[in-house]
Amino acid sequence: MVSITNAHNDLIHDAVLDYYGKRLATCSSDKTIKVFEVDGETHKLLDTLEGHEGPVWRVDWAHPKFGTILASCSYDGKVIVWKEENGRWSQIATHAVHSASVNSVQWAPHEYGVMLLAASSDGKVSIIEFKEQGVSAPIIIDAHTVGVNSACWAPVSYEDGAAAGEQPKELRRFVTGGADNLVKVWRYNSETQTYALEDTLSGHADWVRDVAWSPSVLLRSYIASVSQDKTCIVWSQENNKGPWKKTEVQQDKFPDVLWRASWSLSGNILALSGGDNKVTLWKENLAGAWEPAGEVQQ
């Protein structure tokens, strides 16, 4: 078991392994991002990336076909894209369209190109597609009036019902959770080249802190949303259409607010973490209810 202590001088807010599971990027309130090389039991600090002027909330690795690229978002309202070349990290793009803290950043599925989804406390989400020569063309959407706390892409999927031989219609979607207690599903419209609200899911009684779309393309789509109201709701939709079904992961409230939700790569297990400094794992049983599957405590 790899264990890294005191990587940062302050609270850690995110830690993500890259595509191959070889490198770990962590970010912290100390305004830095650290990149570790992880190999079995050992780890080695490769670099410390400094550039943000505020606490760094989230980091995300881009798909390796684009190079060794990392995106980070911070309280300073910026999204910085970092690239490693020959062992040296440099900032290759700064995205500063938001007027408040950027709370989450995520790369789109690589099939869509080099595209970032950023959610900010200014109530907007922005989708930035990096095109040639550093020109970026952000699409900015007013998503949640008080602030957007999290945004997550759906896995690449296609609309059902395409006739044989016909190219099935691409279904490019993402989900946002905000301080208006709502979860919203957005869908890309390739004709207008923008994202339109597809569904609004209400069920939480307080700020939605994190949303996570299951990477699985199994029978149904799953979205997990965790909230300040100490609940986690799993929303599911059959065959990418129709209404979203609401399932509470646990009937009773969790002991403390929930901060983060994460799906395993094939979407079987949901990991929730919250204010009680505990991580709980959940698994859907064959009857469609969620059962605890484990627990991690520091």
Binding site: H13, P55, A100, R260, L265
Partner: peptide, 12 residues
């Protein structure tokens, strides 16, 4: 309206 940052987390 930036929320309180998370102090712990779990990512698969």
């Amino acid at each position: 309206s930036t929320p309180v940052p998370n102090e712990c987390g779990a990512i698969w």
